[in-house]
């Protein structure tokens, strides 16, 4: 009797391991199939939101551009700037960031539309017809950051550059740059 019970238990254990194992294999195959899928470069899934808080980034943009640096919200540069950036990706601030044509065109379309949002127009004040490649060169940006001592930014290991928006602006990737959201690492809240 005891032996019979042990045998049943043994087979039950074996069966459950086999089931689980096949399930696992199925899962890994399914996920690898997903990974082999092409990027969805068709219709874009973003909303041209007028509310800063609701700024939603295009997944392809976050994936392609956000792997090397913060995915800067498109609204932070005028359309002409993005066009220049996207046409010079083989020398992107000294790096090679070239993309295949399909991906590049999808991103250009997104950046052009998203950067036309009216809600950030104050950023482009005093810009005239210029199309700077760097957000940090916008006159508005310079004005907003000119009182911060360099020991808080450039000489601060945890920040190092004004290009690292999200080092201090906690919700930068969501397009929120309110002063209330600023915490400078090693310094604390910033209030000018």
């Amino acid at each position: 009797m005891k032996h019979k019970t042990m045998m049943i238990m043994g087979y039950a254990l074996l069966a459950s391991v086999l089931t689980f194992s096949f399930y696992g294999m199925g899962q890994s195959l399914a996920s690898s199939n997903d990974k082999y899928g092409e990027h969805d470069t068709g219709e874009m899934e973003y909303e041209d939101s007028k509310q800063h808080a609701a700024t939603k980034q295009y997944p392809l943009y976050v994936d392609e551009c956000g792997s090397c640096h913060m995915a800067y919200p498109a609204q932070l540069l005028p359309p002409a700037s993005w066009q220049k950036i996207m046409r010079g990706l083989d020398d992107h601030f000294g790096e090679n960031a070239e993309l295949d044509t399909t991906t590049r065109q999808a991103l250009e379309k997104y950046l052009s539309k998203a950067s036309s949002s009216r809600s950030y127009q104050k950023l482009f004040r005093n810009l005239g017809n210029q199309a700077p490649l760097r957000i940090t060169e916008l006159p508005y940006f310079v004005h907003e950051h000119d009182e911060i001592p360099s020991r808080f930014i450039q000489a601060n290991d945890k920040v190092s550059s004004l290009s690292q928006c999200n080092a201090c602006h906690q919700n930068a990737e969501r397009g929120q740059f309110d002063e209330d959201d600023v915490t400078i690492p090693g310094v604390g809240r910033w209030d000018d």
Partner: peptide
């Protein structure tokens, strides 16, 4: 008769070792 569980155990170990990991 004592049932021989050795083949089941061997198969079980083999299955575990050749799993998705």
């Amino acid at each position: 008769m004592k049932p021989d569980l050795t083949p089941s155990i061997c198969l079980l170990i083999a299955v575990v070792l050749s799993g998705p990991a």
